[in-house]
Simulated scan of single mutants.
Amino acid sequence: MSGLKREGDPAHRLDALRGTTPPRPHDARAIAALAANPGCARRALMDGAGLDKDAAARHLGFPAPFGQSPFAITRGNAFEALVKADGCAELLRMLRELLRLPVAEVAYHDVQNVGENTDARTGAHLRHAHTRSLIDRAARGEDDAGTLYDHPLLALTIAGHTAFLEPDVVAFQLGGRFHIVEIKSFAVIDGQAEPSAVAAAARQAAVYVLALRALLEELGHDPLRVSHDVVLVCPENFANRPAASLVDVRRQLAVLRRQLARMTTLDRLMAGLPEDLTFDLRPGEDGRPTRPVAELADAVRRTTARYAPECLSTCDLCFFCRDEARQEGASDLLGRQVRDELGGVASVAEALGLADGTRDPAEGQEEIARLLRNAERLRRECLGSV
């Protein structure tokens, strides 16, 4: 009876928020996106409840065009196959060069096909159990332990739900430590890659680092044996030749830990919500939502969002939240740096009023009001001298 969800407990409340649809499982991309905007209560609640934000956004009339094109997916799969060909021979070459370690003999384990003849849920549990066994043997230093693990399956608990995560490769016996290997198909030109793409890859790799550290700790090993330096493999210049580099994900790990800890204490965020609040789409027999759009929009607006322009590349509800911020004239539209510098000034109109003196600062706004008025004075002086 202890496993039952009782009315009033956080798990029951999250189920009520989600409504009649089953919880959507978290993948590494979704978990990584949490680190992109850790201060958004709306996202924390929806992800904690396992809500399908894409379906909600589409029903609200604000679909987000996420997802890779078929061409990009095909290119990515072809590049990953090249890196992993012949038992990851090309990857091993790069690891030897990058880490300057003599990896003479290699034991390669392909975990991807474990449990393939069972249903998806059973197969996931079998793959995860096999991964646990392989990682445990490696950490214990057994002679038959592997060096490269292709598509192992890790697990991470997110707000009471288990998310299964599949890194591209886990490498071991590199200085006695585990390294997450992330294979991406965006190009590195003259040693430089698109910063936003690298940042997204770092956030995703940090999820795998966190999951593998949790597994080691669960098995009784030192979690810090998982390196915070992940191996990022990308095509070099305009050829398809892979090149590897190390990316330090300590900052992404710190943000991710804070956000996941926040999701495990969602009861604090739910405390101020109306008891009858739900994001239920009320799908009909054909699976299509039947809930009135205005009613759902009102329910979503009862939660606090922290919109930023970066949300446009990470969150399914980005267009809805941007429209909401525009209607409110929120300073969030100006970007996180401007919003943070404005402190407690929530709207553009409020900032302009403080700047031109037509609005008196509230308690705690005296300093930002002085700075805004100085900026306005300098602006007028500059315009007057033109």
Rank of each mutant, 00 (worst) to 15 (best):
A33Q: 02
A33V: 01
A33M: 11
A33K: 02
A35C: 07
A35Q: 06
A35K: 05
A35H: 04
A36R: 08
A36I: 05
A36C: 07
N37W: 00
N37K: 06
P38N: 14
G39F: 11
A41K: 06
A41W: 06
A41G: 04
A41R: 12
R42F: 12
R42M: 02
R42T: 13
R42G: 00
R43H: 01
A44P: 08
L45W: 04
L45M: 12
L45Y: 01
L45V: 14
M46I: 02
M46S: 05
D47T: 08
D47N: 07
G48S: 12
G48R: 10
G48H: 03
A49M: 01
G50K: 08
G50Y: 04
L51K: 07
L51R: 05
D52F: 07
K53V: 08
D54Q: 12
D54S: 15
A57E: 07
A57D: 03
A57C: 02
A57W: 09
R58P: 02
R58G: 02
R58E: 12
H59A: 09
H59K: 09
L60P: 00
G61W: 13
G61D: 04
F62I: 09
P63T: 08
A64C: 08
P65T: 14
F66L: 12
F66R: 15
G67E: 09
Q68W: 13
Q68I: 09
Q68G: 09
P70K: 12
P70S: 12
F71C: 11
F71N: 05
F71H: 10
F71T: 15
I73H: 05
T74Q: 14
T74P: 00
R75S: 10
G76M: 13
N77D: 12
A78N: 05
A78M: 05
F79K: 01
E80S: 08
E80V: 14
E80I: 13
A81C: 03
A81Q: 08
L82G: 01
V83K: 01
K84G: 03
K84I: 04
K84C: 13
K84H: 10
A85G: 00
A85R: 08
G87A: 00
G87N: 02
G87C: 01
G87Q: 01
C88T: 02
A89H: 10
A89V: 14
A89C: 08
A89N: 06
E90G: 01
E90P: 00
L91W: 02
L91N: 10
L91T: 04
L92E: 09
R93F: 11
R93V: 05
M94P: 00
M94I: 12
M94Y: 01
M94A: 15
L95K: 04
E97T: 11
E97G: 03
L98V: 10
L98K: 03
L99S: 03
L99F: 08
R100A: 13
R100W: 07
V103L: 12
V103T: 11
E105W: 05
E105P: 00
A107L: 07
Y108H: 13
Y108C: 01
